[in-house]
Amino acid sequence: MSARRVVTLAAAAVLAAAPGFAAPTLWERTRDPAAARAERALRRLERIFDGVVQAEGDLQMMQDFRLGTLAIAEMSGAHAFTQPRLRLLLARVLIEADIGREEQAAELARAVLDRLAPGEVWLEAEARVVLAAAAKTPEASLREIARALPLAWHPGTRSSLLRRRADAHMARGDVLASVADYRAAIPATGFAAESALARFGLAVALERSGNLPAALEELRLARLIAPRVHGAELGVLSLPGVFAFRPWDTHYAIALAELGAIPGAADTSAAALSCEKAMAGFQEYLAAAPPSDSWSPAARAHLKALEPTCRTLREQAPRVEDDEPEE
Rank of each mutant, 00 (worst) to 15 (best):
I95D: 03
P24V: 09
W295M: 11
G51F: 09
P290V: 07
E139N: 02
G190P: 02
A287H: 13
S294E: 15
L162M: 13
E233C: 04
V179S: 02
D181C: 04
R115V: 03
A257F: 02
R228W: 00
H302I: 14
L9Y: 14
E321V: 14
A78L: 00
A106T: 03
L197K: 01
R92H: 05
L89R: 01
A301Q: 13
R110P: 04
A125M: 12
A80G: 04
A135K: 00
E124T: 01
S160C: 05
A244W: 14
A214I: 00
A198H: 01
L161Q: 05
A18W: 14
E326D: 15
T137F: 03
T8K: 14
L216I: 02
A232E: 09
I186Y: 07
K277V: 08
A232N: 07
R319Y: 04
L273M: 10
A152E: 11
L202P: 00
E144G: 08
W153I: 13
F243H: 12
W153K: 15
S76Y: 01
A185F: 01
G260L: 02
V242F: 10
V175F: 06
A265C: 05
A3T: 15
S238L: 08
M75K: 12
G281I: 09
V320F: 08
P240R: 08
L162P: 06
Q316P: 02
A22Q: 14
Y182M: 01
